[in-house]
Nucleic acid binder design. Structure first.
Lengths: 131, 131
DNA sequence: TATTGTTATACTCTATAACTATA
DNA sequence: TATAGTTATAGAGTATAACAATA
C-alpha cells in the first residue's frame, strides 16, 4: 500500500470517529472544531474562518447554529465594534470535552494494534507535517 | 501534542488535499472515492454504499451526479435484475487517475519534511490500523 | 474607501419515508 | 416477504452577491 493510500484511508477513519462523536451530541465536525478553537479564549469570526477554511457567510451560519444549541455566545469586541467575538459557554466547553474524550478513546482503539513505542512514533511523525 | 491531536490535524490536512484535487475537476470527495472503488470492476449500489458509509438514497444521488458528469455508467446485473452495477467510464478512469496523481504529489509535499526512512515508517504505521 | 458581518439565495450532500420491481 | 433501487422531500453545510455598520 502506498504512502498516500495509507494516509488517505487513515484520514477517513479519523473523520468517521469525529463525525460519530459529534452525531451523538448533535454536533457537526465544523461545530466541533469551532468549540476547540474558542475553548480557551474568544475569537473573531474572520479569524475563525481562517482556521476552519470557511468564508464569512459560512461562519455566520456555523456560529448561529452553535449559538442556538447554547454552545457559544457572541459579543461585540470592545476594541473594534465591527468585530463579533465568539466565546464558548460552559455548556460548550463541557460538550467539547466530552467529545474530545470520546474521540481520544476511539483513536486509541484504532491504533491499539501498535506497540506503545510505535504509537509514540506515529504521533511524532504525524505531528511533523503540521505547519 | 497528543496522539489524537496529531492524527486529527493530519486527517484534516489530507481531507483538504482531497477536496482541492476534486474541486479542480468538479468532483466531490464522495465521487472521488466512488471512482476509486469502481476503477477496476463494476459494483452494485448497496456494496458501494457499504464501502462509502452511505445509504441507498444517498448512493443513488451520488451515482446520478457522477453519471451526469460522464464518469460512471449504470448497467443491470445479469445475475439479479434488481441490482444496478456501476462501472467507470474511460473518462472516469482518466479523471480519477489525474486526481490520484495530484493527491500523491500533495501528500508527498506534506510529508516532505520527513526523511525517506521516516516516510516509510509513517506509511507502515498508518497502514497498520486499517481493518 | 476598506473591513467586518449579516442576509437572501442557491447548490451539494445526505437521510427518512413511501414507492416500484424483482427474488 | 424480503431485497435493490428510485423518488420526493427535508435539513445541514457552504458559497456568491448585495447589503449595513464601523474604521
Amino acid at each position: 500500500m502506498s504512502t498516500t493510500d495509507a494516509l488517505v484511508q487513515l484520514s477517513f477513519q479519523i473523520q468517521r470517529i469525529l463525525a460519530e462523536a459529534g452525531i451523538e451530541r448533535d454536533l457537526s465536525i465544523a461545530q466541533l472544531r469551532l468549540l476547540g478553537i474558542v475553548r480557551d479564549r474568544p475569537a473573531g469570526m474572520l479569524h475563525l474562518g481562517g482556521h476552519l477554511g470557511l468564508d464569512r457567510s459560512a461562519m455566520a451560519g456555523l456560529v448561529s447554529g452553535a449559538e442556538e444549541r447554547g454552545l457559544v455566545r457572541s459579543l461585540p469586541s470592545p476594541r473594534d465594534s465591527r468585530v463579533v467575538l465568539v466565546e464558548s459557554t460552559p455548556r460548550g466547553r463541557r460538550v467539547a470535552q466530552e467529545c474530545a474524550r470520546e474521540i481520544e478513546r476511539q483513536v486509541a482503539e484504532l491504533i491499539a494494534g501498535l506497540s506503545a513505542t510505535d504509537q509514540e512514533l506515529l504521533t511524532a511523525l504525524a505531528a511533523e507535517p503540521l505547519p
